[in-house]
């Protein structure tokens, strides 16, 4: 009995059901590092730590959020095959007139990008709240005079004409042609100014002038000629944010543009609940405080992609490795800060679901929700035991999911769902 209890303790998380629910008050993390002064605070877009005025925009429903998340996932998967296919996917999915006028790019949906940071732009500095996204590259913000149109945002819309450090990039500049590899679009020209266009998987888009400007991450971290998109025509599911901070691997991403200062190293902690805070830290201070850091190499399958690809080798649930043939994982895995769920090949997901349900067999299942098919009703429980889920990556790296990294609460504790799903196609 002692052995069984020890095993149970070792392979399960014990969680207070009430802790799964979002709080209405913000509790900042006590582990925010600010180790070297190059850290930004990360908060959940819809949580109490966010300064965004949510009344300004229509908050999407849970079902809409998951639909957008799936669109983003599908778009990443089509993009992965080839840029041409990504374009075809967009044309197939889109019905809007605007989408036919803007070339496709390799971004993703934005309604599901939930984590935001605040940076400074221009001289004098204006504060802008941006979604941070490791799944795309170009940083952009809405700009006056919003020649097309701008959606409502919480911060004042950036006006380059009031900044002494803003410069347009000309069409003849080699910088303009970098847009082909970043957003993947052929830039266009307007009165000799380079024009970028990015269209995302859910038909959200930003179109505007490609410029350079002073970017202030922290008081000590200022970048004079940061290349970004000054959006004149922006529509979509961006919430009340001012735009996007691109952290992909392309030349135009923040990571590459600040490589001389930070050496292409950054880290983040996403807040475990929507009522707490995390951090986004740049430079060599990242992760060094911990002796428990485990590194896995980038996947060679993604060497020509701006996505961060890893090699997933196996999955364990409650201490038992799932019987999944290695070939199932041969299509690779991307780590993305902007997708909510984890999407697995169908065989892998079915094995995970079966093992998880078996480990949770003493709990009452709840109604399925959207693409989430494994939900529980914890209404009559104070505490629950969740089987630990471990992903094994190349290099002997076993990563155990946190207790807050397993479930999504849909409406209340009566519908708490496993936050994993299966791809539609084994080849996705």
């Amino acid at each position: 009995r002692e052995t069984i209890e020890k095993n149970l303790l070792h392979h399960t998380h014990t969680v207070q059901v009430s802790s799964l629910l979002p709080s209405t008050t913000c509790t900042p993390s006590t582990k925010d590092p600010h180790r070297n002064g190059s850290s930004l605070k990360v908060v959940h877009k819809h949580g109490p730590c966010s300064q965004l005025n949510q009344d300004k925009t229509k908050t999407p429903t849970d079902a809409e959020i998951l639909e957008q998340d799936q669109l983003r996932a599908e778009f990443i998967q089509y993009s992965r095959r080839s840029k041409r296919l990504g374009g075809e996917f967009l044309r197939r999915k889109s019905g809007s007139k605007a989408s036919t006028n803007i070339p496709a790019n390799l971004g993703g949906s934005f309604g599901t990008n939930n984590y935001i940071v605040t940076v400074g732009l221009g001289t004098p500095k204006r504060s802008l709240t941006l979604v941070f996204d490791t799944g795309s590259d170009l940083t952009w913000t809405q700009c006056q005079p919003c020649a097309g149109s701008c959606y409502d945002q919480n911060d004042a819309i950036f006006d380059p004409s009031y900044s002494s450090t803003y410069t347009n990039i000309t069409c003849s500049s080699p910088l303009c042609s970098q847009l082909i590899s970043g957003p993947g679009n052929q830039p266009t020209c307007s009165s000799s100014t380079c024009v970028y266009g990015v269209l995302y998987g859910d038909n959200s888009f930003s179109l505007g002038f490609f410029g350079k400007e002073k970017l202030t991450l922290t008081a000590k971290d200022v970048f004079k000629d940061f290349l970004f998109g000054c959006g004149q025509y922006n529509k979509g599911l961006f919430g009340a944010t001012a735009g996007l901070l691109g952290l992909g691997r392309d030349k135009l991403s923040l990571v590459e543009q600040t490589a001389n200062r930070y050496g292409r190293i950054f880290s983040y902690c996403l807040p475990p609940t929507s009522s707490s805070t995390g951090h986004l830290t740049f430079g060599k201070g990242s992760g060094k405080a911990s002796n428990t850091i485990k590194f896995t190499p980038f996947s060679k399958s993604y060497s020509k992609s701006s996505f961060y690809g890893l090699d997933l080798l196996g999955i364990s649930v409650a201490g038992d490795k799932l019987a999944i043939p290695p070939s199932v994982f041969s299509t690779g895995l991307i780590i993305d800060s902007g997708t909510i769920l984890t999407y697995l090949p169908p065989t892998a997901y079915n094995a995970l679901r079966t093992a998880f349900r078996q480990a949770m067999k003493n709990y009452t299942m709840g109604e399925a929700f959207s693409i989430l098919d494994t939900c529980y009703d914890f209404s009559n429980r104070n505490t629950i035991s969740i089987p630990k889920i471990v992903f094994s990556f190349r290099g002997g790296v076993d990563v155990e999911m946190d207790k807050f990294g397993v479930f999504l609460v849909v409406r209340s504790v009566s519908q708490v769902c496993l936050a994993f799903t299966g791809n539609k196609n084994a080849n996705d």
């Binding site: 050496g263 911990s290 895995l333």
Partner: peptide, 30 residues
């Protein structure tokens, strides 16, 4: 292509060493 989403990244410190072509995880690092 599988995708490792942001729900599963909660509570993990994720370290991107792009120059070193590797990603690090610190379980419980947040």
């Amino acid at each position: 292509t599988a995708i490792f989403g942001n729900t599963q990244q909660r509570g993990l410190e994720v370290v991107y060493d792009v120059g070193g072509s590797r990603i690090g995880f610190v379980p419980g690092g947040c």
